[in-house]
Amino acid sequence: MFFLPEHRRHTEFWDGIRDQGSVAMGIAAWGLMTGVAMVQSGLSVLEALLMTLIVYAGSAQLAAVPMIAAGAPLWVILAAAFCVNLRFVVFSAHLRPYLMHLPRWQRLATGYVTGDLSYVFFARRYPHPGRTAAELSQQQAYLAGNCAVNYLAWMSASVTGIALANAIPTAWGLGFAGILALLGVLSSLASSPLRIVSAGVAGAAAVAAWALPLKLNILVAIACAVALCLLLEKTPPFRHGEGRGHA
């Protein structure tokens, strides 16, 4: 669990802090602009604060706010939030063997605080779940360090953005720093030819399928890229050197 003091005894906790710290500025810029955008799109300051503190999922929040302002039916808003978050369902399938030794409420709490970048850093560092209790708790500590930085950077910037909503012009485009943070992490994952293929196919498919509702283009793009890479794995130019470990 992310807030337990025992994590801080592991050096992996501080490694997690350091790794996530490298993108904290981008996360904060993104959180700031999400805070600004929520108020500018029609939520009151109190509503925007509650949404930030409770929902903790930037892209789902940005998708939902205009729908709330337009008076969309509740189930449509929730379905949209679910679809925007579907990538987390994929992440949770991946993280399951790393977390199943924990009680259920701790698993759910850990999942709740694990955003995109925390997951990506974790998957990059630990291709396989720990085999012993000690290894598993080191992995937990690393994830906890990542999540702590992500949470603090996001929440503090988001609350600041809500407070300053009428002073920061969205026209400055500070939110682009969040995209650059994701781009940097994407570059760090491009460690094999097939992964570069995966990124190219997913990017092209996401643009081509943009017109799909509820941000489903993101899911379609992931499915296309993964399916194509699984096929290419079996073909001669890629067959060697791809079987080794990084997830």
Binding site: A123, L183, S198, V207, A221, I222, C229, H246
Partner: peptide, 17 residues
């Protein structure tokens, strides 16, 4: 095996558009 390629695909699908 597919999880090798999913994280970078998810990021590219968000970032490139």
């Amino acid at each position: 095996r597919g999880l090798q390629y999913a994280p970078i695909a998810a990021l590219a699908a968000v970032v490139i558009p």
